[in-house]
């Protein structure tokens, strides 16, 4: 049921009539490209799907429940994905249809 990378590559290969090697090369190229742009705080927007951007999460204090010790967790940059409007409406429809 779930679409893992293998299935994704296969599907893309059949649609594009490429070999799966080509597709996976392209995918890895794309992912590293996205990564490098996010590092530079660019947003990568894929129309009709959504956009990737880097968000800064502030530092926080977390407690290890096992020993009760408190840790200051450093701030970090995380990649986030914001779904586009079309995806959102689709989600809404999905909710309404059921």
């Amino acid at each position: 049921m779930n679409m893992k990378n293998k299935e994704l590559v296969k599907e893309l290969a059949t649609r594009l009539k490429w070999t799966s090697v080509e597709v996976s090369e392209m995918l890895s190229g794309l992912s590293s490209l996205i990564g490098s742009h996010l590092v530079e705080s660019d947003t990568v927007s894929l129309e009709d799907f959504g956009q990737f951007e880097a968000r800064k999460k502030g530092e926080r204090i977390s407690v290890n429940p096992a020993n009760g010790k408190r840790y200051l967790v450093p701030p970090k940059l995380v990649p986030v994905f914001k779904p586009s409007a079309t995806v959102k409406t689709k989600l809404k429809d999905l909710g309404n249809n059921e």
């Binding site: 779930n2 679409m3 599907e11 890895s28 799907f49």
Partner: peptide
């Protein structure tokens, strides 16, 4: 592919992303 199959399959994994 991703936006279609995420609705049909509920989960799409892209390697590296």
């Amino acid at each position: 592919v991703v936006s279609e199959s995420v609705f049909t399959d509920k989960l799409v994994q892209i390697k590296g992303i």
